[in-house]
């Protein structure tokens, strides 16, 4: 979570806003969920995956997490389900599966 609390922004008066529409915090779009745009979700097969990291470098939504030089999980709060990762995977280790009516836990 970000430290600049905008939860009550709709009630702020003109003098409450940081000057000149400045956003006083960096990268706080992490709190904004775009996962709801998705109709298909990427699923990675850990066995087939060669950890080449192509999916990581090609993701338009910075939504593929990598740790210790390895792809770990998809950030489903941000993944829009474009499927670039699945399309580019040289090992065919990622498949796009339809989202059900129940959206996954995104937080």
């Amino acid at each position: 979570m970000s430290t600049w609390d905008v939860s009550s922004l709709d009630e702020w008066k003109s003098d409450r806003f940081p000057l000149g529409a400045v956003i006083p915090e960096s990268g706080n779009s992490r709190d904004y969920v775009t996962g709801g745009w998705r109709s298909e979700r990427p699923v990675r097969d850990d066995v087939t995956c060669t950890q080449c990291l192509i999916c990581w470098i090609m993701c338009p939504d910075s939504a593929i997490n990598a740790e210790d030089e390895k792809v770990t999980t998809f950030n489903l709060a941000h993944c829009k389900g474009c499927g670039v990762c699945a399309n580019e995977c040289p090992a065919d280790a990622i498949t796009m599966v339809p989202e059900g009516c129940d959206l996954p836990e995104v937080k």
């Binding site: 904004y32 990291l53 192509i54 338009p60 939504d61 030089e69 941000h78 829009k80």
Partner: peptide, 26 residues
């Protein structure tokens, strides 16, 4: 290489509202 790049900070955070599959954010 890619492994080395994963150690660097990704300076564009997700949660932006570019279209799915946008080339600009890549």
């Amino acid at each position: 290489n890619l492994k080395e790049l994963t150690h660097r900070e990704d300076r564009l955070e997700g949660g932006h509202r570019l279209c799915a599959g946008c080339g600009a954010s890549i």
